[in-house]
Design a protein around this nucleic acid. Structure first.
Lengths: 223, 223
DNA sequence: GCGAATTAGTCACCAATCGCGAACAATGTC
DNA sequence: GACATTGTTCGCGATTGGTGACTAATTCGC
C-alpha cells in the first residue's frame, strides 16, 4: 500500500479493517518500515481513481480479497500530522468475516481494540470514529452478518451482537426479534460443535417486510 | 465564499444549510455569477485551517452567524466535476433554526427539497446524502430541536418530526414518548396563536435517564 | 448402556410500551 | 352563550419485550 512516490499527496485513504477476534473487535495494523514497533492503519495515496476505488485497492492489497462490506467514515484533518504528510485523510471501514484468510505474521497483525498500540493522532481518530460508527449503524446495516461467514449458527450471531453492543442478550428475546425481522433463513445443514445438541445453520437472507408502523424512538436520544 | 484564487484547490468544503420552510425542508443555494440561473451549494476552498473551521467560515459568510448545529457528511469525488475543479469535496450539513435571519433576496435563496434546481452532480450527491443522513440520525441527535427556536410549542415540535419523518404522528403518543425521554422542560410562558387554547412553550433540556434497557431493534434492519 | 453435563431451541407469563379514540381545557368567533 | 378551534390528558386494547423454565439432542464419564 504505502508506496510514497509524490511526496505530499493532497489526500490519503486510510482503511480500518475490523473483524471479531476472541470475543472482541480487532483491527488490522501494518508495521511501518521506519520504527521497529511503530504501527499504522493501511493507507493509500490518492491516484485520481475515485475514493471507493482507492479504498478497495488498499483493502485488496492487504487481504488479497475484498472486505465483506465497506463504507466511508469521513474526512479527517485533526490538526496533527499523518504518516503520509497529507493535508486530509479519508477514512473507510471494512468488515472481514471471521475465517477469511488474512496476512497475519508478515508486517500485519490483528490487534484487539483494547490493546491497540500508539497510532498517529489522526489515525487514532479515524479508528475511534470507525468503531463508534459501526456500533451506531448496527440497526441500519447488516453489520453483524458481515462479520460472520455466510452460514452461521444463531448462537454465533447472538455472540456477535453481544460483542458489538457490549452487553448480554437474552436468547429467547433475540431469536424472537430475529424471526420477526425476517433477516435469516435456515439451511438444512447442522453443525455439531463438541458437546451438546447440534445447531442449525442459517444464512443472511433479508425479506421484504410490511411497512412496520412503529413510532419514533425518542428514548434513543440523549443516550 | 467562493473566491477562486489558486485555480485548482486540493479539496473544497461544501455546505448544505437546511431549515424548515413551509412544511418542507429547504436548502440554501447560491446563484453563481457565471450562468444566469445556475445555482450551487455554498463552498470554500481549503486554507489549511481545519475542516470544521472551513465549514464554519463558509456558513458564517453566508448567514452572518453560526448554524445551530453542524456535522460532517463525508468526502465526495463522484467522478463528475465540481464547480471549483477540486479533486474531492468534503460535505457539511448545518441546521438553521426557523426565524434566523438569512440572506434571502441577494444571491441566495431557500429552495424546498422538492424543487431544487439542477446542481453539479457532486453537489447533488452531497445534498442527497445530507438529507438522508439527517433523517437517519434523528434518533441519535437532537436534529428536530435544532431546526426550531429555543422555545417552541409541542405542536410545532411534532410538526417538525412529521416533516423529517415524512409521516403523521399521533399527538398523544408523541407527547407520551417525549415526556418519557426527558428531552424538554416546560417554561412558564404561553403563546396564543389565533383561535384556540394557548400553547405552553417548552425548551430543549435533556436530562439524564435511567439506562433504559430495551433490546435491539432488529426490525429497523432491511427497511 | 445409562445418567449427568452441555448446548440448542421453544414456550408461556407478565410488565412495559404503543396506537388510538375520546374526553377535558382554554381560548376566539359569531 | 353556543360553537369552532386548538392544546392537553386519560384510558383501553393490542403488541412488544424481558425473563425463567421447559424440551430436545448430543457428548462424556462410568
Amino acid at each position: 500500500m504505502p508506496d510514497r512516490r509524490p511526496k505530499k499527496a493532497s489526500h490519503t485513504i486510510d482503511v480500518v479493517l475490523l473483524t471479531a477476534v476472541r470475543a472482541q473487535l480487532g483491527v488490522l495494523l501494518w508495521r511501518t518500515p521506519e520504527g521497529r514497533e511503530k504501527w499504522s492503519l493501511p493507507w493509500e495515496t490518492a491516484r485520481g481513481e475515485g475514493l471507493e476505488a482507492s479504498a478497495a485497492r488498499a483493502a485488496r492489497a492487504v487481504l488479497g480479497s475484498d472486505p465483506a462490506w465497506m463504507e466511508q467514515i469521513g474526512a479527517f484533518d485533526d490538526s496533527k500530522r499523518h504518516p503520509g504528510e497529507a493535508e486530509i485523510s479519508v477514512g473507510y471501514v471494512g468488515l472481514i468475516s471471521v475465517g477469511t484468510p488474512s496476512p497475519v505474521g508478515g508486517n500485519y497483525a490483528w490487534f484487539p481494540l483494547s490493546d491497540v498500540p500508539q497510532l498517529a493522532p489522526r489515525q487514532r481518530a479515524i479508528l475511534d470514529t470507525a468503531v463508534s460508527m459501526i456500533r451506531l449503524r448496527m440497526d441500519q446495516s447488516p453489520v453483524a452478518f458481515k462479520l460472520l461467514p455466510q452460514m452461521f449458527t444463531l448462537t454465533e450471531l447472538q455472540h456477535m451482537y453481544e460483542l458489538l453492543l457490549g452487553k448480554r442478550l437474552h436468547k429467547a428475546s433475540f431469536r424472537r426479534a430475529l424471526t420477526g425481522a425476517w433477516l435469516v433463513e435456515p439451511t438444512d445443514e447442522w453443525r455439531s460443535e463438541g458437546r451438546g445438541r447440534p445447531a442449525q445453520l442459517y444464512r443472511y437472507a433479508p425479506r421484504k417486510r410490511r411497512p412496520a408502523q412503529r413510532g419514533i424512538r425518542l428514548d434513543l436520544l440523549s443516550s
